[in-house]
Every structure is written in structure tokens, then in C-alpha cells.
Design a protein around this nucleic acid. Structure first.
Length: 877
RNA sequence: GGACAAUUAGCUCAGCUGGUAGAGCACAUCCUUGACGUGGAUGGGGUCAGGGGUUCAAGUCCCUUAUUGUCCACCA
């Protein structure tokens, strides 16, 4: 074994081995309990980023943990076609070659898109493998593969037949850049600088009277069909029912009264453009106003715009202001910041347009999804995200699922060229069921990418295939893990889809993680160029180090800043494990690993102490993982392995190992192996490769991947030994501290006298004297019940129940000693005072738990004794 | 305009059901001891954002203020 752990030498080898052995590919087995996690399928838009590594680590830690616990664990991988996101990328890519979508046609475009998928889909899979994710690649799926596509069609048809899908003309969010409708969830509201233009329209037959109003989008004036005021507004009551004149198009529009208008905002008059504003749309419907659409799909003004036809929306905006100004009807422009809807993919300003689109009726689907959470059947971690979940469902609107795209699932609706009847069916019908015409054409629109994602927990397991063993066995899944940003895009839709089609929630727990950010807390993004490729980190530090880092130092649901220093710290920790293992391996020698059972009788206090500590760590880590506290679990493993095992136990045990004749040597080796094996197992979910490499090289078993998770045992709890060793540790630390403060070189050894009146305490120190010699630069340790034979000028210090003296008179600076002891006494006095005041408090005595009071009493006694000893020492100086 | 977080050592963050503040990095001093300098030892450094309240006891629960961030929301 090399002094440095080299990830490159083992990672690929071990991953291949696990695949070959089929560890990640569970078979349906009724004798074992399944544990299932659906991996959120990454978009095939590009390579993976750090967020994927973060999420992948979390779900893999859970999967490996459960697998070791004996569950039949399935981590189901896959990729997402990501309809619009990918199509945008492909169009950009084609533009480099000077090719446009229209050049290729639908079929040609699809061909190119599939090539894209081959390239990036496979690249992503390779990246996930490099991270050590224990996914079952035999079951890997793609949202547009045959099975998933079949599920999509099935769901669409069933919802349609149930009346939950309809086609209707509505205002939808239209992205003029991507040339498609998008759902509400895809609209981002962004505060932008903009103008707020004030105008007035003349009123017919009332010279000198005007309807004054303001707008942030003057171009929509071309579609104005009314002016609205509040019915109670005294200022305008006389105008209701009159006609205002939209001068540019010379259109007469009514002045209507509606409670939607806020009297105290602006002038209290609102222009109404039902075809281009969601509120106006509703108001228009209430007043039977016409909808005048003035915009083409590409954001140019259409024929309804008169002279403005053909102009871009912003150009038209400018010219309309000019024209109004020329007419003397423009009042002023204010600069304001206001919220503007933009498309989350391309950031272009979204236009509300009146369109014929397909919608999913949400009301009856949302209700059970909400109820499941309220009834406690769906557990969201951390719980605060439950509010986001309920809020979204309570406020849900119908879901616009049609997209004017090519890449994705085409809507299974067929239009009759003869009678215009629409047939929704799983297979293209041979003829129109209404007029028997064979002139049928499939709907041009595609489905929202989330339509297929919503089915992921069951479409991937074989649904709608009725006899799918996988589906019966692995559904419902156990936990769904994703970032908070897709809680409503994805989680909610999976929940109601699972309920609707499987009759059962798709998962019990929802685990929400935060986002990866850069060192400055900024979002990692392409445009900022601050993204970090996880594979670069893997290349440099190994997958284990990256994974360990991603698991620690942050709690679930919080964002995580990427610090390379922390990856390095994780790498150092793993290197420490490596070297500790190397040390143990050097001492084990040839032959079988000794087991604890054979040496139980010869275990020393130190052995029992570390075994007991290990036992406690097992219990805590298991508990933490059960609670999804990965960070705490990883921290506990780190603390145990590094502090207790490496810095203390291994140091304590060296003398026994170096002495071949020591009768307790086998016990030490067995203890080391026992503790190492447990540590490797605990660490394995976080850092799978290094643990497996060591595990196998020790011959602990075939592979830690399929080893059994350690179980804490009452028989291995040794409270007495824990206490004893802690006492020795305390003494060693005190001596080291003293030596360091006095600048005593390590080469200068000193005898250590331990004076304790209590016989049991003397016993502890006698037993631990070897450790004091080895770890506190002592030449010898003499334990006695009085100060006989100790130089009056010896350096002294106080620990619990004992005094320690070291004859180092020649090195002692008495002034400094006095100062040190005075400080020590002050500290002890404070402690005594604090405890005493607590114990004098009647409230505390009557209300605190008895064991706590007992603890405080013990402390009081301890500190009082130490204080007395320290005072004595100061006096004798 | 709502909702939710965050505010703890110089930096980045832990701190579970309330019971004497922790880690990593950074810093200072020391250590070429036979696993590891990607190491070891020791140390300095926090009135846990401010103010109230509940409690015998609050970083931990409640209210409030401030700052920062995120999400949601139709204010023309």
C-alpha cells in the first residue's frame, strides 16, 4: 500500500466490479423488502453540473445504506428529453451550421435531435458512473423511450376520456422567441426597469373630457376595447356608459364599471385589452367585450394594428407613443420598475396571447394531492417545504400542456380534415368516427416535458403493462429527492399522477435539497462562467472526496457553496483512513483476521473503550441516516475515525503491537480490525470506492457494497472503560498543555507522579500509566496516595480526583507558575460558583430532571475538590 | 403585497426533541517518534444580529425590529 491513496487506481476498477457482480441490479424477490429511489432524470441538454453531483450523492448514500441494511435496493436511473430546453439547444447548435428548423422539416429535425440525445444522454450516464452512483443501468430509461412514450399516450387518453383534458381558447403565456406556449410555472417574474406611459382618450360627445390612464405596454392600446372604472368612483360615475375614442384606430370603446379597478391607484381608470392581459381577459368576459388580438406569434403587430402591422412590439410601442404625442393625447412617461413575466429558459418577455391550446383540468387532481399531505401520508423533509407544496396546490390553475415544439411527445389527437372532429386515441384511427373520412392529421403540438416526468415513478417500472413484476414489487418508491426549485414542476405532478393512475402515492418521503452555489454564493451558471464540472474535481481529488464533501457541512434544504478547500479537507480525511488502514494491515500480518469473539477475555481497557465508542457511533450514524441527516452522520464518522481511532487508540496501542510477545497483542489487532471494519461500513455510503478497496484488501468480505450494515450491540457498551480512558486522556492533555506552555522540549522526559486519595482512581491511573508514558513524554508514572518523595519544587497540576506532579524544577519559572495556577483557580472558582448557584435555585431543584440534578451535584463535588487541590499547590509554591 | 429561510470564532458552516457553545479552513507556537506533513501536539479567538417574552434554565420555543436571500402574487 502506498502512503497516499490514489483514487484513479481503484475507482473505475471497483465500479466495473460492482456492475459485473450485479450489485446494483436487484431482482424481484418477495423474501426481501424493496427499497426504491427514482433518480431525477437529468436533462439531456448538456453535461452534468455540480448540482447533479450533489443530488446524486444524497440518493446514493441512502441507497447504499439501505442496500447494506439488507433491502433489495433499486436506484433507478434515466434521462429526460427536456422538450423545450433541449430543442432550444439543438436549434442553437444547428444555427452554427447555418441550418434552421424549417430547412430540416419535422422528421429531419427529429433525426438530428435523436443524434443529440445519443451523444449527451450517454455522456451523462458516464458522468453518473464516475460519481460512483450505484444505479441499475440495466433498467435505465429515457422519457422518450418506447415504454415511457406509451405511458404518456395512455395517460393523455385516459384523462381526456375522463374529461380532465380539454382543448380551449385561453390566454396563455406565449414565448415569442421560442415560439411556443408555456405553463404558468415556467414564467419567471422579474423586476425590470420600464416605462409607465400616461395617455388620455377623448370621450365621444363630451368635449374637453378625457379618459386618462397609464400603461406599461402602449402597443396593447391597439387592442383596447374598453375603459374601466370602479363603480363607486364618484369622479367617473357620469362617464360610465359613455364611449371613449381610441384615436389611432378611431375605435369607439365603452366605459364600463368593474370592481377590479382600484380607485386609489393611478387615475382610477384602466384601459382594457382582453386579448393581451389576464385580468383584462376576465373583465372582458364579465362585460361581454370582444377580444382583439393584435400580435403575431413572433411579436410583430398583426393586421388588427392598422398602420402598425408588421412592426415589432417594441418598435410599435415607440411609434404609438409618438403618434399619441402628435395628437396631444400623450401626457407623460414615468420610469418605474415593475414585475415582468419572462420565460425561464430564454429570459425573453412573455406575451399573454389568446390561443387554442390543450389543458389539464387541475381541480379534481389537486385535491387528493393536497389531502395526502394534510393527512400526513406524504412526508416532506425539511417540513417547511410543506407550505410551498400546499400553497401551490391550493392556488392551482389549469395546466397548459401543449407546446408548439417538435422534440418531445406528440399529442395523440387526430383532426379530421373533413368535419374537423377531433379524435383522441392511443393509435391513429383508420377513419374519422364521425364522418368516416380517412383524411386525418395528427395534432401538430407536443406535450409539456413535465407531462412525461410526472409519470416517471411508474412509467419506468413498466406501466401501463399490467403484469410488470417490477411495478408490483418496487412501486411505490420510498423517497423522492430533488431541489426545491422543482417542487411544483415535478413533485406535485408526480403525486397526483401516482394517485390517479396507480391509486397510490408514488413515494412516502420527499427530500428537498438546496442549490449548489459558487464561493461567493452566486448561482452556478453558464453565463457567469462560474460552473464547476464535477468530473474535474473527481479527476483531481477522487469521487469519494467530492461525495464526502457534498454530504457534510450543510443541512438538508439549504444551499451549498462550493469550496475547493473543503474538498481537499475531505480528501485529507480519506487519506487518513487510508493510512490508518495501512498501519493496521502492517500489523495484522498473514493469515485470517482475528475476530473479537476470540479475544473477549484479553481485551484491555483501551480496547473496550474504543469498541464502546465505535458501538455508539454505529448507533448514532444509523439514527442520523434514518432521519436523512447525512451531514451529521458523516461528521460523526469523521470524528470517530480521526479523533478517537487515529489520534488516540492507535497511539495507545502501538507499544502492544511492536512487542511480539505481548499477550494482549492479538486483542489489539482484533480490536483494530473490528473497529476498522465497522468504520469502513459506516463510511461506505458516502465514499464507496476507498472503503471497498480497503475492505476487500483486508478480506473482510466479498465487497463492502453488499456487506451487512453494522448493528450497535448492548454487549459492546463499556461505560466504565469509557470513563476510565477519558480520565487518562484528560490527564495526558493536561500534561501536554503544561509542557507546551512551559516550552519543555519533547526530548526532555519527566517522571509523572499521580497522587490520588481514592483507591479506585489510583487503579485507573496505574492501568493507564503506559499511555501516559507513551503519549505525554513521561519517563515513568508513579501512582501513590500521598506526596512522599515528590520534590517540593515539582510542577503540579490538578485533574479530576487527582493531582499530578512533575519534577522539572530547573525549568520552572515560579512567577509564571503562580500566574498559571491563579488562572486555573479563578476558572475553578467560576465553575464552582456557577454550579452552586444552580443547586441553590429552588426552581431548579424542584423542576429539573433528577438525573440532571445528580449530575450537577457530582460536578460540584469534583470542582470543589480540584479547587482545594489547586489552592494547596499555589500555597506551597 | 404575502410566505419562507438565514443572521453562531477572521472565512464557510454544524448544533436532533431547551440543561455549562462545535467542526473544517485560516492564524500562533512547537514536533524530521518506525500509518499518514494530504500528518501530530498545544493555543488564541464567539455577551450565538438587536429588543422583549415563556421557563428553574434559551443559540435552541414565542413575539418584535433590522439586514440579507429565496419563492409566490394580476396591481393597470
Amino acid at each position: 500500500m502506498d502512503t497516499k491513496y490514489n483514487p484513479k487506481a481503484v475507482e473505475d476498477k471497483l465500479y466495473a466490479q460492482s456492475l459485473e457482480k450485479g450489485y446494483f441490479s436487484p431482482k424481484v424477490d418477495q423474501s426481501k423488502k424493496p427499497y426504491t429511489i427514482m433518480m431525477p432524470p437529468p436533462n439531456i441538454t448538456s453535461r452534468l453540473h455540480m448540482g447533479h453531483a450533489f443530488e446524486g450523492t444524497i440518493i446514493d448514500v441512502l441507497t447504499r445504506f439501505k442496500r447494506m441494511q439488507g433491502y433489495n435496493a433499486l436506484l433507478m436511473p434515466g434521462t429526460d428529453h427536456a422538450a423545450i430546453a433541449t430543442e432550444v439547444k439543438i436549434v442553437e447548435d444547428m444555427a452554427k451550421d447555418g441550418v434552421k428548423k424549417s430547412d430540416l422539416g419535422r422528421d429531419g429535425f427529429m433525426e438530428r435531435a435523436w443524434q443529440w440525445n445519443d451523444k449527451y444522454g450517454n455522456e451523462i450516464i458516464e458522468q453518473i458512473k464516475k460519481m460512483g452512483i450505484s444505479a441499475d443501468w440495466n433498467r435505465a430509461r429515457f422519457t422518450m423511450d418506447e415504454g415511457c412514450s406509451k405511458a404518456v399516450v395512455e395517460v393523455f387518453v385516459r384523462l381526456y376520456e375522463k374529461g380532465l383534458i380539454y382543448r380551449g381558447e385561453r390566454l396563455v403565456n406565449w414565448c415569442t422567441k421560442c415560439n411556443t406556449s408555456i405553463s404558468d410555472a415556467e414564467v419567471e417574474h422579474e423586476d425590470k426597469q420600464g416605462g409607465f406611459w400616461h395617455f388620455k382618450y377623448p370621450i365621444k360627445g363630451m368635449d374637453g373630457e378625457y379618459a386618462t390612464f397609464a400603461t406599461t405596454r402602449p402597443e396593447t392600446m391597439l387592442g383596447d376595447v374598453a375603459i374601466a372604472v370602479h363603480p363607486d368612483d364618484e369622479r367617473y360615475k357620469h362617464l360610465v356608459g359613455k364611449l371613449a375614442i381610441m384615436p389611432i384606430l378611431d375605435r369607439e370603446i365603452p366605459i364600463v364599471a368593474d370592481r377590479y379597478v382600484k380607485m386609489d391607484f393611478g387615475t382610477g381608470m384602466v384601459k382594457i385589452t382582453p386579448a393581451h392581459d389576464f385580468n383584462d381577459f376576465e373583465l372582458g368576459a364579465r362585460h361581454n367585450l370582444p377580444k382583439i388580438n393584435i400580435m403575431n406569434d413572433d411579436a410583430t403587430i398583426n393586421e388588427s394594428g392598422g398602420a402598425y402591422q408588421g412592426l415589432d412590439r417594441y418598435e410599435a410601442r415607440k411609434k404609438i407613443v409618438d403618434e399619441m404625442d402628435g395628437l396631444g393625447l400623450f401626457i407623460k412617461k414615468e420610469d418605474i420598475t415593475h414585475s415582468v413575466g419572462t420565460h425561464d429558459r430564454c429570459k425573453d418577455v412573455v406575451e399573454p396571447l389568446n390561443k387554442l391550446q390543450w389543458f389539464v383540468k387541475m381541480e379534481s387532481l389537486a385535491a387528493p394531492a393536497l389531502k395526502a399531505y394534510q393527512d400526513g401520508n406524504l412526508n416532506i423533509v425539511p417540513p417547511r417545504f410543506g407550505k410551498v407544496y400546499t400553497h401551490w396546490l391550493e392556488d392551482i390553475k389549469d395546466w397548459c400542456v401543449s407546446r408548439q415544439l417538435w422534440w418531445g411527445h406528440r399529442i395523440p389527437a387526430y383532426h379530421c380534415g373533413c368535419c374537423e372532429h377531433i379524435t383522441v386515441a392511443k393509435e391513429p384511427p383508420a377513419a374519422c368516427p364521425k364522418c368516416q373520412s380517412t383524411n386525418l392529421k395528427q395534432d401538430e403540438d407536443n406535450l409539456d416535458t413535465w407531462f412525461s416526468s410526472a409519470l416517471w415513478p411508474f412509467s419506468t417500472l413498466g406501466w401501463p403493462g399490467e403484469d410488470s413484476e417490477d411495478l408490483k414489487y418496487f412501486y411505490p418508491t420510498d423517497v423522492l429527492c430533488c431541489g426545491y426549485e422543482i417542487l411544483f414542476f415535478w413533485v406535485i405532478r408526480m403525486v397526483f399522477s401516482g394517485q390517479e393512475f396507480m391509486g397510490e402515492l408514488p413515494f412516502k418521503d420527499v427530500l428537498i435539497h438546496g442549490m449548489m452555489r459558487d464561493e461567493q454564493g452566486r448561482k452556478m451558471s453558464k453565463s457567469l462562467g462560474n460552473g464547476i464540472d464535477p468530473l474535474d474535481i473527481v479527476e483531481q481529488y477522487g469521487a469519494d472526496a467530492l461525495r464526502f464533501y457534498l454530504s457534510t457541512g450543510n443541512s438538508m434544504g439549504n444551499d451549498l457553496r462550493f469550496y475547493i478547500d473543503k474538498v481537499e479537507a475531505a480528501r485529507n480525511f480519506l487519506n487518513k483512513i487510508w493510512n490508518a488502514s495501512r498501519f493496521i494491515a502492517m500489523n495484522v500480518g498473514e493469515g485470517d483476521i482475528p475476530t473479537l469473539d476470540n479475544v473477549m477475555d484479553s481485551l484491555t481497557t483501551a480496547d473496550r473503550w474504543i469498541i464502546s465508542k465505535c458501538n455508539a457511533t454505529i448507533a448514532e450514524v444509523t439514527q442520523n441516516l434514518d432521519n436523512y441527516d447525512l451531514g451529521l452522520a458523516a461528521q460523526k464518522i469523521n470524528d470517530f475515525a480521526w479523533d478517537e481511532l487515529c489520534d488516540w487508540y492507535i497511539e495507545m496501542v502501538k507499544s502492544r503491537l511492536y512487542n511480539a510477545d505481548d499477550p494482549t497483542r492479538p486483542a489489539a489487532i482484533a480490536t483494530l480490525c473490528h473497529v476498522l471494519e465497522a468504520t469502513l461500513k459506516l463510511l461506505h455510503p458516502f465514499s464507496p470506492f476507498i472503503t471497498d478497496e480497503i475492505f476487500q484488501s483486508f478480506g473482510f468480505g466479498e465487497s463492502v457494497v453488499v456487506a451487512s450494515w453494522p448493528i450497535a450491540s448492548d454487549a459492546l457498551n463499556f461505560a466504565k472503560e469509557e470513563q476510565d480512558v477519558e480520565q487518562i486522556k484528560e490527564a495526558i492533555k493536561a500534561i501536554r498543555n503544561l509542557r507546551s506552555e512551559m516550552n519543555i522540549p519533547p526530548s526532555r522526559k519527566a517522571a509523572v507522579y499521580v497522587v490520588a486519595s481514592n483507591q479506585a482512581v489510583r487503579g485507573v491511573f496505574e492501568a493507564g500509566s503506559g499511555h501516559i508514558v507513551a503519549l505525554a513524554s513521561a519517563s515513568e508514572v508513579i501512582v501513590q496516595d500521598n506526596k512522599t518523595g515528590i520534590d517540593d519544587n515539582a510542577v503540579s497540576l490538578v485533574v479530576a480526583s487527582a493531582e499530578i506532579f512533575m519534577p522539572l524544577a530547573d525549568l520552572v519559572d515560579f512567577d509564571k507558575e503562580r500566574e498559571r495556577l491563579t488562572k486555573e483557580i479563578k476558572k475553578l472558582e467560576d465553575e464552582v460558583a456557577r454550579v452552586a448557584s444552580k443547586l441553590a435555585n429552588q426552581g431548579f431543584l424542584s423542576k429539573a430532571k433528577p438525573e440532571l440534578i445528580e449530575e450537577e451535584r457530582a460536578k460540584e463535588a469534583k470542582y470543589k475538590e480540584m479547587l482545594a487541590l489547586a489552592r494547596g499547590q499555589l500555597a506551597s509554591l
